[in-house]
Simulated assay, not measured.
Amino acid sequence: MPIRFFILVCLTLQCVTAHSGEVNVLAHTNLSDHREKVAEQSYLVPKQVLFLDIESLSSTWFTAAPVYPEWSVPGIDIRKSDSQGLSIIKKVDGISYAGLKHRFLLVPLTTGKLAGNQEKITLSPGLSSNKHQATLTLPNINVRLPDGAESLEQFLPASQLTLNDDLSFNAGDELHAGDSFTRTISVNAAGIMGFMIPAINAGEIPDGISVYPEQTTVGNTVTDRNDFLGGYRQQTLTYQLNQVGDYQLPEMSVRWWNLSTQQFETTHLPAVAINVLQAKEAGAESQLQLSPKARIRLVIRQHQFLMASFLIMLLILIQLRAFIFKTLSVLANHFQSLFFKIKKRNQMKHGSDFHLPELNP
């Protein structure tokens, strides 16, 4: 029986069959995203994650894993998923096939009609002395922003989204002028990579309070098998209380495009009311309880400040040392030149018998 295998490619819009000797290659049509089935729509939106599934099948087996191309498609980011390959068994035209299924993540980065290109993968079926190449045709996809979108930078598509915050003080804790606390805002969104989630606007901060952005953490959420689920973004803000008074930190909100309902939604964090008392007397311990993460960040900042101060002082000493040596060298050369001028002038005045004591420069 001749060796036959085929490639099943999701995200194509036509079915193509090619024959090359004993090799049978098939490209099948399908479009999938985080829900496994895309809703009826005439366009896709930027930043949403699509799944490009490639099934490599052989009527025998494979002696090596498929070799995939370095994808290069303008306006589209394609990367291999961290999920494990799946072993699969299928029947095609009455013939049993076995093989592997690998997943790639495809993300439109811009708007417009993005043209797919043809790429080749290399397969090594068992009982065959030759490697075989199969041609994959990526689809042409139409990508645009929905009506009402503010900008591509702030656009956030997701099938689900949660917004939470964590304050480093507890209800009932007294806050005094001179104290500081942190507020960590977390966005978790399904169907988008973490680094594509826009930054969260802290809102207008009232006079009497200063805010300092701390580090931002982004990443992806996955299943136990490393199947992609979505992304997250964590922003930490440090608030410095400068004056006594009653304040309200502004409400925070995230506007996002629901991929399931095809509508915009807005998720809110409520405003935070705080009362700032008089500064504590010198030597009094703060009643403000920092969270473990906030204490770690504070210690890290203190060490970073000390290290930066040490390096600055070291650079100053190095520069000062070089300046001192250069100044002494210039002075030595100056006095040596002056000494020889005086000696020469006195020799000319008193004759060759006049001698000044020798100086060691």
Score class of each variant (00 low, 15 high):
residue 159 S to D: 11
residue 278 Q to I: 02
residue 184 T to C: 11
residue 184 T to H: 07
residue 261 T to V: 10
residue 346 N to V: 09
residue 289 Q to D: 08
residue 7 I to Q: 04
residue 359 L to V: 11
residue 324 I to E: 04
residue 133 Q to T: 04
residue 294 A to W: 03
residue 149 A to F: 05
residue 282 A to I: 07
residue 126 G to F: 02
residue 157 P to A: 11
residue 121 I to P: 07
residue 276 V to Q: 00
residue 217 T to A: 15
residue 170 N to E: 14
residue 314 L to N: 05
residue 96 S to C: 03
residue 218 V to W: 07
residue 232 Y to R: 03
residue 264 F to E: 05
residue 27 A to F: 05
residue 27 A to L: 05
residue 212 Y to H: 09
residue 360 N to V: 09
residue 329 S to G: 13
residue 277 L to T: 00
residue 180 S to I: 03
residue 57 L to E: 00
residue 244 V to R: 06
residue 335 F to H: 15
residue 302 Q to D: 03
residue 109 L to R: 10
residue 150 E to C: 09
residue 271 A to W: 02
residue 330 V to T: 15
residue 137 T to D: 09
residue 233 R to N: 12
residue 347 Q to Y: 08
residue 122 T to K: 05
residue 178 G to E: 01
residue 319 Q to W: 14
residue 230 G to C: 11
residue 126 G to D: 11
residue 157 P to W: 15
residue 318 I to M: 10
residue 57 L to M: 06
residue 93 D to Y: 05
residue 361 P to L: 11
residue 256 W to H: 04
residue 132 H to W: 15
residue 259 L to G: 02
residue 6 F to T: 01
residue 241 L to N: 00
residue 87 S to I: 11
residue 188 N to H: 12
residue 304 Q to A: 06
residue 15 C to I: 14
residue 155 F to A: 03
residue 322 A to I: 13
residue 7 I to A: 02
residue 190 A to P: 05
residue 169 F to E: 03
residue 360 N to G: 12
residue 138 L to W: 06
residue 91 K to Y: 00
residue 265 E to A: 12
residue 81 S to K: 08
residue 168 S to F: 02
residue 31 L to D: 07
residue 341 K to T: 13
residue 15 C to N: 07
residue 100 L to E: 01
residue 77 D to I: 14
residue 349 K to P: 06
residue 253 S to G: 08
residue 218 V to D: 14
residue 307 M to V: 14
residue 60 T to W: 07
residue 79 R to E: 14
residue 134 A to H: 14
residue 242 N to V: 01
residue 293 K to F: 07
residue 256 W to T: 03
residue 5 F to C: 02
residue 11 L to P: 04
residue 99 G to M: 02
residue 3 I to D: 01
residue 58 S to D: 00
residue 283 G to Y: 06
residue 229 L to F: 06
residue 273 A to R: 05
residue 250 P to N: 01
residue 107 V to Y: 10
residue 189 A to V: 13
residue 56 S to Y: 04
residue 305 F to E: 00
residue 172 G to A: 09
residue 201 N to E: 08
residue 251 E to G: 00
residue 257 W to N: 06
residue 57 L to T: 01
residue 80 K to V: 08
residue 336 Q to S: 11
residue 301 R to T: 03
residue 328 L to W: 05
residue 132 H to S: 06
residue 33 D to C: 04
residue 63 T to V: 13
